[in-house]
Amino acid sequence: MEFDTKLVQIGQEPHPGTGDIVPPIHLASTFEQRAQQDLRYFYGRGENPTREGLERCLASLEDASYALAFSSGQAAGTTALSLLSPGQKLISSDDVYGGTFLLFDLLGRYGITVEYVDLTDLDALDAALTDDTGLVWIETPTNPLLKVADVTAISERAHALGVPVLVDNTFASPVVQRPLALGADISLYSTTKFISGHSDVIGGALVHNSEDFHTRFFRYRTAAGNVPGALDCYLLHRGLKTMSLRVRRQNESAEHLVRLLRESPKIGALHYPGLAAHPQHEIAARQMDGFGSIITFEYLGDVAELLEKVERFAVAVSLGGVRSLIECPALMTHRPIPAETRRRLGIGDNLIRLAVGIEDVRDLAADLERAL
């Protein structure tokens, strides 16, 4: 079955007895055991049919054996970190989402160290990989500088030492990039973004092929209670059906806007993997099916004035939804990162991030031209 067919049909089988082509939403918190032919459902914190339909679809998109849905991307990330033990080290991309940075900041109290590495530099990765490494965490493209890591090369190096590799694939989406096929062990998603696509639900997911990981993650999720409700799962699954259409439209519009931005005297450094001048353009072209719909650039003007002038772009955090968004990472998504660290990474106070939606690109272009 092809990718776009999976989006619409996997986990959406007509309901037995009634033939509903949209399965019912199972809101029950508990289940009558005597009514079940095959006893599978006990309590909603552990099992739920609506959630399982979403998970089957998510797993199918990467030809994976397992997927688990969570109440947020942060909850999914917290669960993945349960693979680590005191005394171990986590190697992470140096340029990561501010919420991820906050999550990693908690690990020290559990005896786990974090080493931030520029994972576009394989020599730096080789130097960081040691016997106490428990997990390599790749964000690619990174947030917000859009650096692209070679997932295959990194996975080969980590696996040589028996170290699992997780890829936060939120910025790309499974439409654009499928980390498991590139050699990674776990794909992590904030399903809030492209998978939902409508900025109306919070969620996360882990996708992988390991029975051991599945058992551990399921137990952790059940114990911690970080499960999404049935209605959230329904909304996420509904969003999935149009994800391919949305993402490809967003990518096309982003490429159009990049061409516009290149011509503006108000734009300094422009970050987009589709640019031939991007340092990892060749890697992106090899491992991604499209270059994404996130654009970041240095604005050579008054940032506050720019954010005030735009009309078609909403000034808001997040990405991947149908509505186009604009934000300043240093003031918004990456504010939790210390200023010195932001400056070292190149996240200046004049860095702007665009998350391109599905509006008519002519309106988006006209809005940017007027505001610039």
Rank of each mutant, 00 (worst) to 15 (best):
V310N: 01
S93F: 01
H281A: 09
D63W: 13
E369D: 07
T120N: 12
N209R: 05
L364S: 02
R344G: 10
G183L: 07
D200P: 00
P179E: 09
S65E: 14
T30K: 12
L81E: 09
V227H: 03
D38R: 08
C57H: 05
L119T: 10
E55C: 11
L39E: 09
A124E: 03
R157M: 12
L122H: 07
S190M: 08
D132N: 06
I186M: 10
T130K: 10
P23A: 12
V356Y: 07
S92D: 07
P265E: 15
T50W: 08
H278D: 11
T18Q: 05
V151S: 03
R362M: 13
E255H: 08
N143L: 13
Y43S: 14
G290N: 09
L129H: 07
E298T: 08
D302C: 10
V148R: 01
D105F: 03
C328Y: 00
D232E: 12
I112R: 01
S199K: 09
I112Q: 02
A158F: 05
L84G: 01
V163P: 01
L236G: 03
T79F: 09
R312S: 05
A205R: 00
V8I: 04
E263N: 02
L206D: 04
L39K: 04
M243S: 04
G229K: 06
D132Y: 04
L102Q: 15
G204T: 05
R34S: 10
A28Q: 13
R216N: 03
L58V: 07
G73W: 06
H278A: 11
V96D: 06
A230F: 04
L54P: 08
L325R: 09
Q12W: 09
E139F: 12
A230C: 13
E305D: 15
C328M: 08
D212N: 14
E282S: 13
G357L: 09
R248P: 00
D94V: 06
G11L: 08
A149G: 03
S71T: 12
M243R: 01
R157N: 10
I347T: 01
S71Y: 04
G197K: 01
E282C: 00
Q33S: 13
T333D: 12
S210A: 13
E211M: 08
A181R: 11
E298P: 00
E62P: 01
H334V: 09
L27R: 04
L188S: 02
A128P: 00
S155N: 10
A330G: 04
S85D: 10
I202V: 15
G183H: 01
L372V: 13
G229Y: 04
N251G: 06
Y110H: 14
A172Q: 07
D185H: 05
N251V: 14
A365V: 02
A172W: 06
S71D: 03
D150R: 01
L161S: 12
D212T: 15
E139A: 14
R342K: 14
K6E: 05
H26W: 09
L107Y: 07
S93H: 05
I295Q: 11
D360P: 00
D185W: 00
A124G: 07
A269F: 08
I337E: 00
A153F: 09
G274R: 02
G11M: 11
L61G: 05
Y234C: 12
D20Y: 14
L54A: 11
E263D: 08
G197Q: 05
T215R: 03
A67V: 03
G274S: 06
N350G: 08
G108P: 04
S324Q: 08
G19F: 11
R51I: 10
I358Q: 10
L135Q: 03
P338V: 12
